[in-house]
Write a protein that binds this DNA or RNA. Sequence first.
DNA 1: ATCTAATCTATAATATTAGTAGACTATTGG
DNA 2: CCAATAGTCTACTAATATTATAGATTAGAT
Lengths: 153, 153
Amino acid sequence: MRLSKRGEYGLRAMIVLAGNPQTDSQLPIVLIKDIAQQEKIPIKFLEQILLSLKNIGLLHSKMGVGGGYYLAKQPHEITLGQIIRVLDGPIAPIRCVSQIAYESCGCPDEETCGLRMVMFDVRTAMVDILDNTSLADVAGRVEAQRQLLGHVQ
Amino acid sequence: MRLSKRGEYGLRAMIVLAGNPQTDSQLPIVLIKDIAQQEKIPIKFLEQILLSLKNIGLLHSKMGVGGGYYLAKQPHEITLGQIIRVLDGPIAPIRCVSQIAYESCGCPDEETCGLRMVMFDVRTAMVDILDNTSLADVAGRVEAQRQLLGHVQ
DNA sequence: ATCTAATCTATAATATTAGTAGACTATTGG
DNA sequence: CCAATAGTCTACTAATATTATAGATTAGAT
């Protein structure tokens, strides 16, 4: 029941990117290298991860001097659920409760399978959080917590 | 974010065992072989799984003719969370939110780590379900669903 | 041109998972 | 006591997934 490093690193990177808010005047481009350094992620591994997120349309990039990665949408439009599904696959404890990647678990009657009923609830609980938490929400919570702890920016 | 086969098989086996309710007159002993057959689980794999559950004290067993496995406690005293922790380890998307197997994720300040905040909520949601659902609860839900669908026993 | 930075593909190293094998021990019943 | 039954224990293997690493390539800026 654990997130992979791939998923974790991807989420951390996206949260960093969301921390550089998009303005009209200045593009919030961040280098892979900088994210890797800041979050202690192996750079070559992070490259692959960001590339996946780019290919699915969550990130844009720019090559060459002054290039880097930036969010393809506003932070409030990107949820953690989207990111995790790209990097770790469907969010479901067992396949027979996945909406996106359903697969029979082979029990005689799914309608009366006790395990399936409970795991359906677990899946729902996870998805409820992850699909309703955006990068902006995360940034907001971090900010609120900083204020609460009296951190000075 | 998926349960292993080990975990899944263990849960299925325990649900089967809880389906044979414990009475004073007759011991509800079930053979590994029968569970394996009914649930389509490789028998040698299931042996190991049941042994783990026995060693942790969730199952008892009896060798020889007329032997087999039976629950060590009443179905309402055994939760799915207990079973999963034995077979799959701690229930937490990342280690830094596990109560039982905490481990630092290496971020500069855990108190203001956005990923940690969200994953803490996810963990809580999963644990709330799994630690509050007993084998008796599962059996009850299966029975209720059977009635609802008009199955005749 | 040259430097920078992302892109792409392949592959290596490691860990985990899933399953198999077989010898051993305990219990029952004849 | 012996044979059959059924769980115990340990080791091992095969497959798969995870976590990277390497290096050549392409695009863009100055």
